[in-house]
Nucleic acid binder design. Structure first.
Lengths: 220, 220
DNA sequence: CGCTAATCTAGAACAAGTTTCAGACTTGAT
DNA sequence: ATCAAGTCTGAAACTTGTTCTAGATTAGCG
C-alpha cells in the first residue's frame, strides 16, 4: 500500500478543468469534455462500489473511463479530489430524492433525524461507495478545501431543508454544524466496524435534540 | 503521492509485536524491544511535529529510530497503525496532565467544554502533530479498529472524568459519543483550514449543551 | 480551408508505503 | 556452553498515486 506522495504535488497546473458542476466558473467545458468528466465520475463510483477506497485506482479509473491517465489528472488533480467530486455528484442526487418526499415529523429535530436516517439507509445500500467517499472527505487536506466546503454546504442545505428554515440564527447554524460533525464521524465509526447501525441511529437522534434547544420558544 | 496499497496487505503475520502499551496481552517485550518501540514512537512524533502526516515517512522513521524498515513494520504493521499508536501515547500524557488540574466549571457541560478546549490548545501548539494523528485516526480502516477503539476509550475516560461520573447512564454515554464525534470532526475542519479556532470553540460549547439534557433533574 | 494554442494519448519515470529474503544476532532452555 | 527458534538488519522488489514528455488530435479563428 503506497503512501500519500504529495508533499510537493498538486500545485502549478496550467489550467485545471475540474471545479464546475456547480461552479461554471472557469472555461465552460465542451460537450466531449463534459462527457469525459461524466465517464470518469461514473467509473469512479462504480469501482468504489466494488471495493471502496482502495479499489478506486487511478489507472483503472482512467482505463474504465477511456481516458489517458494524464487527462484524468487534468480533470481531477488527485484521487481525493476525484472521490470528493464523486461525493458531490451523489449528494446532488440524494438532495433531489429527499426533496421529493419531505420528512413527516412534527418537530424539526424529528424531521432532521429522519432525513439523515434516510440518507444513511441509502449509504448502507452501497457501503463500499460510502467508504470511499467518506474516507476521502475526512482525509482531504487543504488543497481540497473548496471542494470539501461545497459538500459541506450541500449537506447543510439538506439539513436546513428538513428543518424548514429559511433564515437560521447563528445558534441554529452552530447546531447544524455539530449535527454534520456527528454525521460524518458516526459514519466513519460505522464504516470501520466500530459502531453498529443501531448505534449510529442513536447518535443521530441524540445530536438532533440540540435543535430543540436552539429555538424552543422562538416562533417560525 | 503513492496510494493505499493494502488490498491484500496486513494479513497473516507470524507474531506481531505491537498492541501493548496498554494491553500487555501477547508476549511481554524485552527491555531492548521496549526501547526500540519507544524510539520509534519518538521519531514518529518528531517527524509529525515537523511536517504532519506526509512528513512521517516510514523509511525516515526507521532511520531516525535506528531500526530496520522490516523491524518497524513488525512493530507497527502500517503507517496508520504507527500514527494511531503515537496518538495513544500522546493521549496518555494529556490525560495525566488534565487530571492534575481538574476544570473548575460548575455545571458538567462547562467542565467538559473547558477540558476539551484545554486539549485543543495543547494541539494548537503542535498543529502538524495534531494533523498527523487525527488524519490517521479518521482514515484508519477495519484493520486498525482495536487501536482506534482504545483511543476512543481513552477519550471517553477523559470526558467522563471531566463530568465527574462513575456510572453514566446509557443516555449520557450517547451524549459523550456525540461529543467525541464533534471533537474529531471539528478538529478535522480546523486542521484543513475550513474552520477557525473560534468556530471550533463554539462547536464544542454547543455540543456540550447536550450534557445538560441528559441529567437535568437527576442528582449526581 | 489552414493555422495556432490548447487538449489528449501512450507510456516512461518517480516517490513512498509495503513486502520479501538471506544472513547475522539474541534469547531461552537444555 | 550449545542449539533451535525467534528477531533484527540491509537491501531489493513490488504497488499504486503522481508527474513528465513527445507526439497526435481538436477547437476556434481568420
Amino acid at each position: 500500500m503506497p503512501a500519500e506522495a504529495k508533499v510537493s504535488a498538486k500545485v502549478n497546473k496550467p489550467a485545471k478543468v475540474d471545479a464546475r458542476a456547480t461552479a461554471p466558473g472557469s472555461p465552460p467545458l465542451t460537450e466531449r469534455q463534459e462527457a469525459r468528466r461524466r465517464r470518469i465520475l461514473h467509473a469512479s463510483a462504480q469501482l468504489a462500489s466494488r471495493g471502496g477506497f482502495d479499489a478506486v485506482q487511478m489507472r483503472e479509473v482512467a482505463e474504465s473511463s477511456q481516458v489517458a491517465l494524464g487527462t484524468l489528472y487534468r480533470y481531477f488533480p488527485s484521487k481525493i479530489h476525484l472521490l470528493v467530486a464523486t461525493m458531490q455528484d451523489q449528494l446532488e442526487h440524494m438532495h433531489g430524492t429527499l426533496r421529493k418526499k419531505p420528512p413527516q415529523g412534527e418537530r424539526a429535530a424529528e424531521r432532521v433525524a429522519e432525513t439523515l436516517m434516510r440518507a444513511f439507509r441509502a449509504l448502507q445500500r452501497e457501503p463500499h461507495l460510502a467508504d470511499a467517499m467518506v474516507r476521502a472527505l475526512t482525509f482531504a487536506d487543504r488543497s481540497v478545501s473548496p471542494e470539501v466546503d461545497q459538500v459541506s454546504r450541500q449537506t447543510t442545505a439538506i439539513i436546513l431543508d428538513a428543518m424548514g428554515l429559511e433564515h437560521p440564527t447563528p445558534e441554529q447554524l452552530s447546531a447544524v454544524r455539530v449535527i454534520e460533525h456527528t454525521w460524518h464521524s458516526a459514519l466513519i465509526t460505522w464504516l470501520s466496524g466500530r459502531a453498529s447501525i443501531a448505534q449510529v441511529k442513536i447518535d443521530i437522534e441524540t445530536v438532533c435534540r440540540l435543535i430543540d434547544l436552539t429555538a424552543p420558544d422562538a416562533h417560525e
